[in-house]
Each structure stands twice: as C-alpha cells, then as structure tokens.
Amino acid sequence: MTISGVALLAICTLLGGFLGDLLGSALGVKANVGGVGIAMLLLIAARLWLTRRGLMTAGVKFGVEFWGALYIPIVVAMAAQQNVLVAARSGPLVLIAGVAAVLVCFATVALISRIGKKGETMDEIEAKARARTPSAGEPTV
C-alpha cells in the first residue's frame, strides 16, 4: 500500500524531530539537534529491516520515493521565500563575512576531499550497481 510508505516516512520524520528536540533540551540548547539526521538514520534502518523481512513492497517504496522525488521543487519553493532583499542590502560587513566564510569552507572541502584516497564518484557507484542488477535504470530527477 502506498500510504504505508508515506506513513513510514511520516513516523520516521516525527520521531526524529521529537528525539532531536529531546537531545537539544538535554544539552541545554534552544534548538533541534540533528532531528532530520536521526530521522534519516531511522528510515535507513527501517528500509534494511523491511528488505530483510521481505516486507518491502512496491507500494511502500513508491510512498517514500515520491516525496524524495519532490525534493527539488520543494527547495525551489523554499528559495522563493527567503528574505533575499535584506541579505542583499545589509551592507559591507554582511557581504564580506558571508563571502569569506563560504570561500574558506569551499577551500576546506577541497582540501579534505583530497586527503586520503579518492572515493568512488556517483557515476562509478551507479555503474557498479547497474552491473549487478542489469534492469535498474537511471533515477529520475
């Protein structure tokens, strides 16, 4: 059933948010600590468990993957409601601090990504997965 996939996703998201709030208040922080991350870990665990039990039906998969596929349009809607005007108008301190922080972080990403052996790229991982299961197609964006 499709709704069981949507429900599974909702339960994981709600439980993750709840645990994130609990973690936040336990640490004395006025914020949700890692709620979405905890929810993602719960969903990954649920997926592994369901697959092992043979309970992963096409309906369950569809119910979750539908929302994953709507992710980019949702991000576009999110971008359309940012306070871009204030960010653009707030003067030189904001501009310099923003640009400098982002540049330093980009440079560090480049540095850390080059430490150690290079990981497999998404294309390589997918090529391998496709070699194992010849029927798997490209994921739709």
Binding site: L9, G35, A39, I44, E65, W67, G68, Y71
Partner: peptide
C-alpha cells in the same frame, strides 16, 4: 522540506 529530505535517505548507500 524536512519530510522530503528524510525521504532522500531511502537512496543512501549504507
């Protein structure tokens, strides 16, 4: 937003 982000975890390679 959170709902859709969590859904993308379905594709995570453990």
């Amino acid at each position: 937003r959170d709902f859709a982000i969590v859904a993308t975890a379905f594709e995570v390679d453990v």
